[in-house]
Amino acid sequence: MPVVNIQMFEGRDSAKAQIAKDVTESIAKNAGVDPQYVYVIFNDVKTEDWAISGELFSETVKKSG
């Protein structure tokens, strides 16, 4: 039973169904697992809760534009 945990910035709800479908199909095909046993978990993250290069992503976005 593969479990795929996807963390991404919040606000991409409209893409989740297609992402889940694509990930499930890929795991099923490449790992030989029945798709009904593939679990995909989405964790929405706020930009102020994500850091890159020691800086909050929300601050990086403000600087770039």
Rank of each mutant, 00 (worst) to 15 (best):
M8R: 09
D34H: 09
Q36D: 11
A17K: 08
D22F: 07
A17F: 04
V23W: 01
I19D: 01
S26D: 05
A20R: 09
M8S: 09
F9D: 12
K16W: 02
G32V: 09
M8L: 12
Q36M: 05
S14N: 09
K21V: 13
E25D: 08
F9L: 15
I27D: 03
A15P: 01
N30M: 03
Q18I: 12
E25I: 06
A17Y: 02
A31K: 06
Q36F: 04
K29H: 13
R12T: 14
V33P: 01
E10L: 04
F9C: 08
T24A: 10
N30Y: 03
D13F: 13
I27W: 01
E10V: 10
P35T: 00
N30E: 09
V23F: 03
K16I: 14
Y37E: 13
T24N: 11
A17T: 15
P35C: 00
V23I: 12
G11R: 03
V23E: 04
A17E: 14
K21L: 13
M8A: 08
K21H: 13
N30C: 03
D13K: 14
R12P: 06
A15E: 15
K16L: 15
A31Q: 05
A17R: 08
E10Y: 02
E25G: 03
A17Q: 10
K21A: 11
A17H: 08
A15I: 11
K29M: 15
I27H: 05
D34M: 10
I27P: 02
G11V: 15
T24Y: 05
A17P: 03
E10C: 04
F9Y: 10
I27E: 08
